[in-house]
Amino acid sequence: QEEEKEIKRLAKKFNASEEEARRAWKKAGGDPETAEKILKKKG
């Protein structure tokens, strides 16, 4: 599933848990760029 792959990639890229990545993904409405910004800010 595309979403799961994206979440795993985000978690790995930002050294975050999949739970954090999933939360960022949901907050971003499934937009990878926005999710990255959220995780970057958090990191």
Rank of each mutant, 00 (worst) to 15 (best):
A28G: 06
R9F: 06
E18D: 08
E36Y: 04
L39V: 02
E6K: 05
R23H: 14
E2V: 10
A16S: 08
G30K: 06
I7Y: 04
A28Q: 00
E18I: 15
E3C: 05
R23I: 14
A35K: 00
P32R: 14
L39W: 00
E19W: 07
G43M: 12
K41I: 07
K40N: 15
K42P: 13
A21H: 00
I7Q: 02
E19R: 08
I38R: 02
R22P: 00
P32Y: 11
A24S: 03
E4I: 10
Q1H: 13
R9Q: 08
W25R: 02
A11Y: 02
K42D: 15
E4F: 08
K8M: 14
N15S: 08
E33S: 13
K26N: 13
I7L: 04
E20D: 07
L10C: 02
K13R: 09
E19Y: 07
E20N: 04
T34Q: 13
Q1A: 13
K41S: 10
D31M: 04
K37S: 05
K27G: 09
Q1D: 14
E33Y: 13
E18H: 07
I38H: 04
A35F: 05
A21L: 03
P32M: 14
R23L: 12
E19L: 04
I38E: 06
K13G: 02
F14L: 05
R9Y: 06
A11K: 05
K8E: 11
E19H: 05
E33C: 10
A16T: 15
I38D: 03
G29T: 03
A28I: 01
A24Q: 01
E18T: 07
E20Y: 04
E36M: 08
P32C: 08
I38P: 00
K27I: 14
E19C: 09
K26G: 09
S17V: 02
K40Q: 14
G30H: 05
K42F: 15
D31H: 11
E19K: 08
E6G: 05
K13W: 07
K41L: 09
K5Q: 13
L10S: 01
N15L: 09
K27L: 15
E18A: 05
E3T: 10
A21Y: 01
L10Q: 01
G43P: 15
S17P: 08
P32N: 06
I7M: 04
I7N: 01
A28E: 00
A21K: 00
A21M: 03
E20R: 05
K37D: 12
E2T: 10
E4P: 04
G30T: 02
K27M: 12
E3Q: 11
P32G: 06
Q1V: 13
E36G: 10
E18G: 02
I7S: 02
E2I: 12
K13L: 12
P32W: 14
K13M: 12
A35E: 00
K8C: 05
K27C: 12
A24F: 01
K8F: 09
K12G: 07
F14C: 14
E33T: 09
G30I: 00
K12C: 11
R23T: 09
Q1I: 13
P32A: 13
A24K: 00
K8V: 10
E20I: 06
K37Q: 08
R22V: 04
E4T: 07
W25D: 02
E20P: 00
E6T: 08
K8R: 12
E18V: 12
F14V: 04
L39A: 01
K26T: 12
K27D: 15
W25F: 08
A28H: 01
E4W: 11
K40C: 09
E19A: 10
K40M: 10
K42H: 14
F14K: 00
E19P: 03
